[in-house]
Design a binder for these strands. Structure first.
Lengths: 351, 351
DNA sequence: CTGTTAGCGCTTTCAA
DNA sequence: TTGAAAGCGCTAACAG
């Protein structure tokens, strides 16, 4: 990377580097018009591009914002990334991207890498984990974030706070009311569904999934329904598929489906619900005819997925934008939260 | 961002900054074990995090790779991004992300921004445009890339080369045989389809779409079929939907569909095909009963989309990986290309 | 093996 | 208004 430097430009223009700097990169006062023109000319002929690294070093501000997601190919995360990117552009920042496969250990690495690059803020999306096997990594992640914040970094977390990180004004979380919304969904479904409920959840200890399970159960309870069975599988499409195969078996075994026996399946996110649907179809069962099915998130794919899936709509892109703004601004707007809403579609309509 | 510095660590450990640097960050020779331990201890108590900016400046190598896509929320791009990210991690690089809405002007801005940050390589994904309104921006983009390459940057382009950029060994393109594959698809479809063909394409001048149109037409011609009508709409889901509405009208107008009148619709990418399918369904038509439908790319969504869509499978993630490696390595492996394959599914089966 | 000395490219007081 | 000089945090010759 051998680009021309400021002093080369300055020399060509016959001025000092300081002056060149003042005209080329924003400074309080602009030098004389003729000087300025000479400098600009020189910069142009040399194809000068300011070295952002050097500028960052000199003014200790990098204009970088780090984004950490589990999986950028997942529509949930790519929608959030879209929002982050939009906000970053608006605030004239560049975004650094890291994917972690959902492991706190890799999240910690990502935070460290961003800290090293002196990213001014970090946005973390993706469920937390309370599994014991992640405990150690979680502690390290918290420590890394704490250190990052103490060094002046700001972080915005999507969903739930990361345990063990001091809640300062430099650490903000965009709360997603998973529990409340799942509860609303359960109540809504319980209104018309007569049969038993089953929950297809992610691994136990995955906070987002756990919250949704808890909320759903409490919604059922509110409606005077018995608690739902919970099947724990991978928190992705294939996990949903696995669960779906098992449930298909159960559905078939129960013989002809009287309304009182018909299952209502709640998958704790949309891609799992899609997996469940695929498995049921595979096994010759139809939704909503043989079972009701609902998901969570309202990812873009759902728009053209059939049967139309009931779900909880979340403003994903907005969430990304909010998390970014929270991690950038200095106003302590307090804990931000987003609103979601139950969206009933054909997959949970009476057959 | 007030983090502790190397010299603070050095001072605490009672050594010179140079020594501290040697132990903390990889150097050829490691200092004496006891010294090293002291330094590490000091770094630890101070919570030292090396300043990557400063390191980059000193060794003039940033470990940054820039990724430019039209839209990160689009499954085509997010799959590629996944591959880029994987390759970057493997090569211990960080990725900077920029989205451009497909406009060459924003692509140029992104290249400039990456150049300023001294990214060592840039990966550009997304169709080129030959529209006259983009000519100026394209020229500027080419100039920007040229300058970037001359300054030692390396670039990997997915799909087609960017016009006007000198084809040096620092500028590599991962060719996607759009034309050939579209031709293969047309031939395959022509084998069984009796009726007329229609192509739902992106805006004229969008290279990827144009190539696919051209290939498809030549495949039809190979098979002795008349050329297909081409409908130009936006290169996304909604464009496909618009076209689908119009086509539904056409299909209905043609009365009962004898096999000789049944339409086969080729959308130049999958999301458009999905849009077409949605429109047809909206209008009470069924695929493949009332019309055949095929797309291009084989994005992940297709896996659970019904009717199962015929398409051309592209190894998207691999493409991202290859483009990244091409933009990183110094071996001039020559022009790389990927293989795709025609994937026939139910959407083009006989009704 | 360790420390000293120059920078990397830029910004920014501080004088002139 | 312009220039000189110091320094951002680190690395890399070169001495010792």
């Amino acid at each position: 990377m051998t680009a021309s430097t400021l002093s080369e430009v300055a020399k060509l223009a016959g001025v000092s580097p300081a002056t060149a700097s003042r005209v080329l990169n924003g400074s309080a006062r602009t030098p004389a018009p003729d000087i300025a023109e000479r400098v600009r000319q020189a910069a142009d002929t040399l194809g000068y591009i300011a070295n952002a690294q050097a500028q960052a070093l000199a003014k200790s501000s990098t204009g970088l914002i780090g984004l950490i997601v589990h999986d950028i190919a997942d529509p949930y995360f790519s929608a959030i990334a879209q929002g982050v990117q939009a906000a970053a552009r608006q605030e004239r920042r560049m975004v650094l991207l890291a994917t972690t496969n959902g492991t706190p250990a890799e999240e910690k690495d990502a935070v460290a890498a961003f800290a090293a690059r002196r990213a001014e803020s970090i946005v973390i999306a993706g469920s937390r984990s309370t599994r014991s096997e992640d405990a150690r990594a979680n502690t390290e992640l918290a420590a890394e974030l704490d250190r990052y914040c103490r060094n002046g970094g700001r972080v915005g977390v999507v969903g739930q706070a990361i345990l063990g990180v001091a809640e300062t004004e430099s650490y903000r979380t965009i709360a997603v009311p998973n529990e409340q919304l799942a509860r609303d969904l359960a109540r809504e479904l319980a209104r018309t569904h007569k049969g038993p409920f089953v929950i297809v959840a992610g691994p136990e200890g995955l906070t987002t999934s756990d919250e949704r399970v808890k909320g759903f159960q409490s919604g059922l309870s509110d409606a005077g329904k018995p608690a739902a069975d919970v099947v724990h599988v991978a928190f992705n499409r294939n996990g949903g598929f696995d669960a779906g195969i098992e449930l298909a078996w159960r559905i078939k075994a129960s013989g002809q489906s009287a309304p009182e026996q018909r299952l209502c399946i709640f998958a704790t996110n949309d891609v799992m619900a899609i997996g469940v649907a695929a498995a049921l179809r595979d096994q010759g069962l139809r939704v909503p005819h043989d079972a009701s099915l609902a998901g969570f998130d309202d990812i873009e794919w759902l728009r053209d997925f059939r049967p139309a899936l009931s779900t909880v709509s979340l403003p994903l892109e907005e969430i990304g934008r909010l998390a970014t703004m929270a991690a950038l601004s200095n106003d302590d707007g307090g804990p931000a939260a987003v609103a979601g809403s139950v969206t009933l579609r054909r997959s949970t309509s009476s057959p």
